[in-house]
Every structure is written in C-alpha cells, then in structure tokens.
Design a protein around this nucleic acid. Structure first.
Lengths: 191, 191
DNA sequence: GTCTATATTGGGATAGAC
DNA sequence: GTCTATCCCAATATAGAC
C-alpha cells in the first residue's frame, strides 16, 4: 500500500463518492462515518486524516454530487440542444431517478440542507443556479424562454421528484411524473 | 393538577402541537423527546404515557399538521371560491410560510419522510391527495382544470417552498416565489 | 495513511416514587 | 400522569501503534 499523494487523493475520492451516494439518499443524520468508510473499504479512524468533521464531508460531497447529476452530463456532439434537453428532462422525471440512479441533490436533499450550516446552503444555492443556467443555455437555442419560465420548471421537477420519493403507490408516482413532464415540456418551448 | 381524562387529553394535544412545530421545522432526527416535552412544559419521562415511541409521535404530529396547514383553513362564506384560492396561493408562496408560519408538512418534510416508516409515508400521501382535492374543489367552480394541471401546480409550489427554505439570498427567494405564483395562477384558470 | 482501541457525549427508553 | 434517576446503545472524535 503506497503512501503517496496519489494514494491519498484516491482514497479521498473514494470517500467522497461513497458520501455522495449515502448522503443524497439517507440525509445527514442517518449516515454515520462508519457506514461512509465501510462502504468504500476503509475504517472509521482513517476518516479524520481526510476531513475534519462530518459537516465538512457533507458539504464537499454536495459539491461532488453537483458534477454527477443527470443535468451535468455533457451533451454529445451529434445531437441538437432541443433533443438533448428532452432526454435530460425524461431522465430527471424517471423512475430510475426516483430510485436513486444519478440522484440530484437539489431534489433528494431539499429539506435536509435547511438544517445544515451556511456554507452548505450556499453550495445548494450554487447548484440550483447551475441547473437553471444549464437549462437556459439549451432552451436559448430554439425558443424564447424567460428566466421565470425556467424557475417555475425547476421548482416543479425538483418538487415532483422529492414528492415521488415519499409516495409508495406506483400509479400516483406515474401520474405525477407524467403531469410534470408534460407541463415542463410545454413551458420549455414544446419538447 | 387533576388526574382526569380531560387532563390527559389536554396534555396529549399540547405534545402534538409542540411536536408539529418542532418536527416540521427541524425534521425527525434533530428533534429530541426532551425538546418536545420541555417545549410544552413537561418532562421527558411523561412522554411515554402518551406515545410508545418517537416514530409514533412523528406520525401523529404529521396528521395533526395536516389540519393546521394553510390550505385547510375554512373558506369564509362571504367570498368566492376563486378569490379564496387566490388568497391561499398567496399565503402558500409567501415569506411567512417559508419562515415557518403555518408550515405545510408536504414542503417542509418532503425529504424527511422518505426515511420514515411506511405508515408515515401513507400519511404523507394522504395529505398530498387532500391538497390536490382541495384545490380541485375550488377550481371546479369557475374553470376547467384537469387533475394533471393541479398535480403540476402542487408539485411546483411544494418544490418552490422547499427550495426557498434552503436558500438565503432574499432576491433569489423572491424571484422563485414570484415566478411560481404567476405560473400557478395561470394554470389554475387565471388567478 | 490506516488501523485498533477508547474516551465521551447525546439521546431513546425504562423503573419506580409520588 | 408526571416526576427523577438510570440504563444502554449509537455515534463522533481522539490516541497511539504500525
């Protein structure tokens, strides 16, 4: 086991990835340092040579999550902005997303971040801005979408995903996803 | 201190009210039985003669909250369904609501309920249905709103409130609230 | 840098007096 | 029914060996 800087960096990345998975799904309080480390093949004690506290790793994992969410995927070159946005929207309002595939922290941690520190709230706000800007960039190419339109859409799809995660009945979930998908498509210039 | 049934019932109501306030704002894990009881002038030990566990009181407080939220207020007789819905919508998407006045558990506890038991999830689903039905009843009187329209609106306003609670910048909050208020008004037959 | 203890706190739940 | 006192487990964080 090499004691190099690369090795340390690699470990830290593993911890962050593990933290991202666990925190987004279970929230701050229900994740223990032990889970976090066991989940990536390390032990509890080793945690503190990478982070100073649980709050710190939560915040950093949120930043990490921002780069891993559905909407931050890079657009393939052989596809138009319009149809790419369609794909992203379909993915966001999908059962896979509800079930935790590439979870968006904005939806999964909406009420969890309220009780964290200010730094974490700022991170959340930054990710939210990023989401709105990303959609803005895509829609600009083919439609006249206002910032207000996009805020209404992002609030709706984040809300829909958050609600669907708490509801068990498949029919209800499907109804919510469909209704919001339709409405979002209309608002974003007919997609 | 009378040991009557009325007294017990009164205490239980006080605990529920206290639980509703604390849980909706802080979530399950961050509220302790001690807080709960101190907050209504009792001690920790007394808790267990009313409830068997923290999970139980959480679930019951959610039911209690459902009767205390903005949307469950009774409509005054001298007002039309349309203008009443306008008032409710204004209240829901207001700073007061964000700041915890008559908080709606659907928005405040959206991601908190995910990690609770099935009974609690069912309670959440029931409250969500109630919200949609309430709006449906009001809109029916003056417009042709579909169930899908209403699902899109409720997802949006719940999402907006959840997001605004985590964001600090007043200007951003105001933008989100305004954008969603406008859009909700459009969808609900021009209010 | 990672491990195995261990110190220490917080908080859910119970026992028993009144 | 409410109180005080207590048990007990879970989990954060630290100490020290390797």
């Amino acid at each position: 086991m090499p004691l190099t800087k690369e090795h340390k960096k690699e470990s830290k990345q593993k911890i962050l990835k593990s933290a991202f998975q666990l925190f987004t799904i279970k929230g701050f309080k229900l994740v223990t340092i032990d889970m976090l480390m066991t989940n990536c093949g390390l032990t509890r004690g080793a945690f503190y040579s990478h982070f100073t506290s649980k709050s710190e790793v939560y915040n950093e994992s949120l930043k990490y999550a921002a780069t891993e969410t559905i909407l931050t995927q890079l657009k393939p070159k052989n596809i138009t902005d319009k149809s790419w946005l369609t794909l992203l929207l379909d993915g966001y309002l999908s059962l896979d997303h509800i079930n935790g595939i590439r979870p968006c922290p904005l939806a999964f941690l909406a009420t969890d971040v309220v009780n964290r520190n200010n730094e974490t709230k700022d991170t959340y706000a930054t990710i939210f801005d990023g989401m709105n800007n990303a959609i803005m960039t895509y829609t600009q190419k083919y439609s006249l979408c206002t910032k207000e339109d996009i805020l209404a859409v992002t609030s709706m799809i984040i809300g829909a995903v958050a609600i669907c995660r708490t509801i068990k009945d498949p029919k209800s979930i499907s109804n919510i996803l469909k209704a919001c998908r339709l409405e979002a498509g209309r608002k974003l210039g007919g997609i």
